[in-house]
């Protein structure tokens, strides 16, 4: 097998950022503490913004700077703030009494999470490679990574058993889409992007309301008791 040729500096750097985004997703998958999960989400969003700036600078798409600014303001500042307030308000003070400890609510052990995460990520990697996509934005490898991010985010949502983590999973899923759109649709009209962002904010507010409603009723963020509706 001949040596793999080196990518350009831009492609290499962009891919490294994309891989870091995936690693942040893995972190959310593993991370037990909700607070740290929110922090990882904020970090992931900053990485998205960094990638947007990089792509904008190299491919000469100045509107990506605006996108980066919106991303930072919304996903790295506003949403984590909302979440942190939410977590403060719903501090599981009575965790011992109610027996609901939501830290580390995953239902799987270490080996299983890493293996499932890897398997899912590998699936994402190699399916996306088969796509005939050429990019005017971030390098195509980032698209494969984004598919992995999306799939791992799904696993996070399935695997975690508390409302806050599930919501974080949903938002990081959206980060995966942002990553994909930086590859295939970097010039997606700014207006659409901004409306999408506002829409996301709306979703945050609603999720926050629902989390509060759930907590107000159940005195916990755990979803272990959400078993009433079946069949």
């Amino acid at each position: 097998m001949p040596p793999a040729p080196a990518p350009s500096v831009f492609a290499g750097t962009a891919n490294v950022i994309a891989v870091l985004i995936l690693l942040a997703e893995f972190g959310m998958f593993r991370q037990a503490l909700l607070r740290d999960q929110v922090r990882l989400y904020a970090g992931q969003s900053v990485l998205i913004a960094a990638l947007a700036v990089l792509v904008g600078a190299v491919q000469q798409l100045p509107e990506l700077y605006v996108l980066a600014a919106v991303t930072i303001a919304l996903k790295a500042v506003a949403i984590p703030l909302v979440f942190r307030r939410l977590l403060r308000e719903t501090e599981p003070e009575h965790a011992e009494q109610t027996g609901h400890d939501i830290a580390g609510t995953g239902g799987l052990g270490l080996a299983s999470t890493v293996l499932i995460g890897l398997a899912v990520a590998a699936f994402g990697f190699f399916t996306a490679t088969a796509l005939p996509v050429s990019s005017g934005g971030a390098p195509v490898t980032a698209l494969s990574v984004s598919v992995s991010v999306i799939l791992v985010a799904f696993v996070v949502m399935i695997h975690r058993r508390d409302v806050a983590s599930q919501a974080i999973g949903l938002f990081s899923l959206e980060n995966g889409i942002s990553l994909a759109s930086l590859v295939v649709a970097p010039a997606l009209p700014l207006l659409v992007e901004v409306v999408l962002a506002v829409d996301l904010l709306l979703a945050v507010v609603v999720l926050g309301l629902l989390i509060r409603l759930h907590h107000g009723r159940a005195e916990t963020l755990s979803t272990a008791d959400l078993t009433e509706l079946r069949g």
């Binding site: 409302v163 609603v206 629902l210 409603l213 759930h214 959400l226 009433e228 509706l229």
Partner: peptide, 14 residues
């Protein structure tokens, strides 16, 4: 605002 409604809304939105 019932338990069932909260659960259903959560599942739905997610």
């Amino acid at each position: 605002g019932t338990d069932g409604a909260a659960e259903a809304a959560w599942k739905y939105v997610l």
